[in-house]
Design a protein around this nucleic acid. Structure first.
Lengths: 166, 166
DNA sequence: GAAGCATAGTTGAGCGTTGAACTATTCCGC
DNA sequence: GCGGAATAGTTCAACGCTCAACTATGCTTC
């Protein structure tokens, strides 16, 4: 958290406070999202030694034909800042799961490449991950609720990040 | 992330992989949740100097009659570990927004007390926070989608944390 | 009332994230 | 092809979080 406060213009007039029903809806979403992410991350980390953040990086790389990707593209794909991704890839390099390679077409660029060891680690973690998502999310919801979840997510994504609905 | 891997029993048999539609629903939820939390936290932090985590602590304290709460109760309310909350309260103490006070009924306990300065900081941040939640969330959704969001959240909360539906 | 155990909270070290400053390369206009 | 702007990625320092170890108080049972 930076401490520099730059007060930007807020809409004038009384704040549009949430009423009791809106509060409940907001809290239900916030708490469920935090608890679910926390539970899945904890479960995956404890069982496989791979945090959800690292898992996402490995998945992204594994889904490309050559199992490699430009650093910036990988950062976007993982909703990560470049700095954060750079640190994370360094740590994955130490584990021998990813290596860096200068990009042939652009001398400024780097490619993150998934190693065989990295792919094996991902193969080990994937069943644990999918089982967690099933157990904590899909198994708890009706088909209609799942459809609503998707509709809700896609609506928000259109607003938050128009480029992310690939 | 700890690196100690303790392989616990997974259900035997083939993993129940997600099909294409399930993948889309899962990703829509995950990305929207991450982007929304990120956007709200960033916006609040930049405009007020108060992160969402700190904001939640101040709100919890402000909602009690005496503007004070036991550390553990506050941790539960904020979906926080005790350690995390203890660190956070220390940092809020440095800002003069919270102070600690030994609990009269239980010598082991501590009360976190919201100071006048802390309350003032909260009053300044609240309009910014609610405006963010409106702009990024409620304003993007139909009444039906809002109802679905609540239903979804409450369903998950019953599974994840049966005590959290006050 | 002492021993053993449970509970409340803090501390410290290590890891991860953040935002700003920095290096290196490429692109653009002339 | 030169100078300046833009882009790609890394590094650093400060902050925050996690887990485990620790202190201190209260509870229970004999």
């Amino acid at each position: 958290m930076t401490s520099s406060v730059s007060p930007q213009p807020l809409p004038a007039g009384e704040p549009r406070w949430l009423d009791a029903e809106e509060q409940k809806a907001w809290r239900a979403w916030l708490y469920s999202a935090q608890l679910l992410q926390d539970r899945l991350d904890r479960d995956l980390t404890q069982r496989t030694g791979i945090s959800h953040a690292y898992y996402e990086i490995l998945v992204a790389l594994s889904e490309t034909p050559e199992r490699m990707m430009r650093m910036s593209e990988l950062a976007d794909r993982c909703l990560s800042s470049r700095s954060r991704l750079s640190h994370a890839v360094s740590r994955l390099e130490e584990r021998g799961w990813v290596r860096r390679q200068v990009c042939a077409e652009d001398g400024r660029g780097q490619l993150a490449v998934l190693t065989e060891e990295g792919f094996a680690a991902l193969e080990g973690a994937a069943p644990v991950h999918v089982e967690g998502v099933r157990r904590e999310l899909f198994d708890q919801l009706s088909p209609e609720q799942i459809e609503n979840m998707r509709d809700f997510g896609e609506t928000l994504l259109r607003h938050l990040d128009p480029n992310s609905l690939r």
